[in-house]
């Protein structure tokens, strides 16, 4: 059992997500940084889909009510146990009565707490992820609040020795400027050639509207190709006949501010989508803070699949690292 002394800014239970439900309008939810989720679970010997706590910007204060092992992965929000700094990306043993707290965020935006066995909340449509918009999944469908008590589950698969740490070179770091790789496509035919170029050349600034639903960016105005409005599309040049929005897709309502749709986004609507963040870089997207810089870099499908393979190789290497201990 883990008791919430202070909830932090927005701490939610997340796993790999509620997949396969776009058809009914349900977004995937799940951890914004799936790499950190995956590694966090490895370090405590959990099943890859065990639920963890996703902690954003300001950490909670939690008290452990029994001895267990934990890990902290993702962005650098320096963790402390009983007020003493502890390392991230390492198997940590905690004792009953230990208090976990956090310093102010140093880099990245989200840190993940994995606990042996996973956070135990009811499965809703095969996932423990919180989707706050309609209040399902996670802990009572909402972010944690003071006084909540979390149970741990039975998704523990193997014992990992305390002190097991992954190689420094495999740990991602996060600066303040980010290159996010995208595949240009979907309805990019709506943008003028010049605006496609501007979209890729601009250094965008992340606005305060940046959360699990999406990230909105400020920079340049984009223009759409003139047209006769197709029936049902809507009158704004950025409108299309309502269609599905892939996770990571980027739309530019009225050409003003590109929005990258993320894990809790709406699943469809009437804005032209012009590019999609590749699956590997969604993890990095989730570690970007308001006011940081983003450049969208165009890649082809084969390159995206190659990047995906390399990411998988890093995960395999980490798994070997841990198994060899």
């Amino acid at each position: 059992m883990i008791k919430v002394l202070k909830p932090g800014l927005q701490t939610t239970v997340q796993d790999q997500g509620r997949l396969g439900l776009y058809e009914i309008g349900m977004p995937p939810s799940g951890a914004m940084d799936q790499f950190a989720l995956r590694v966090g679970n490895m370090i405590v010997g959990n099943h890859p889909n065990a639920a963890v706590l996703e902690i954003t910007y300001i950490g909670p204060e939690l008290i452990f009510e029994k001895d267990t092992q934990i890990s902290l992965t993702g962005g650098l929000i320096p963790p402390k146990i009983n007020g003493v700094p502890v390392p991230m990306w390492e198997t940590l043993a905690v004792k009953a009565g230990d208090v976990l707290s956090f310093d102010f965020v140093k880099s990245g935006a989200r840190i993940y707490l994995a606990v042996e066995g996973g956070i135990d909340v009811p499965l809703v449509m095969n996932s423990r992820s919180t989707y706050t918009l309609i209040g399902i999944g996670g802990f009572e469908g909402r972010a944690l609040a003071e006084g909540d008590v979390l149970a741990t589950g039975d998704l523990h698969e193997r014992k990992v020795a305390a002190g097991t740490r992954i190689e420094e070179s495999l740990i991602p770091t996060f600066g303040r400027s980010h290159e996010i790789r995208v595949i240009v496509g979907l309805c990019s035919y709506r943008l003028t050639e010049e605006s496609k170029r501007i979209f890729l050349e601009t250094e965008w600034t992340v606005t305060p509207e940046a959360n699990r639903i999406g990230y909105r960016h400020k920079g340049q105005r984009l223009q759409f190709v003139e047209r006769e409005q197709p029936f049902g599309a809507g009158s704004n040049p950025s409108n299309v006949t309502d269609l599905g929005y892939p996770i990571g897709s980027i739309q530019v309502p009225d050409g003003v501010e590109p929005i990258v749709l993320l894990h809790d986004a709406v699943t469809g609507g009437g804005y032209a989508t012009v590019a999609t963040v590749i699956s590997t870089d969604l993890n990095r997207m989730g570690q970007i803070k308001t006011n940081e810089k983003v450049k969208f870099v165009s890649v082809g499908l084969e390159e995206a699949l190659q990047i995906r393979k390399e990411n998988q190789l890093v995960l395999n290497k980490i798994a070997e690292n841990i198994a060899s201990r």
Partner: peptide, 8 residues
């Protein structure tokens, strides 16, 4: 006095 998080 330092801002611990970004925002408005």
């Amino acid at each position: 006095i330092i801002a611990p998080l970004p925002g408005v």
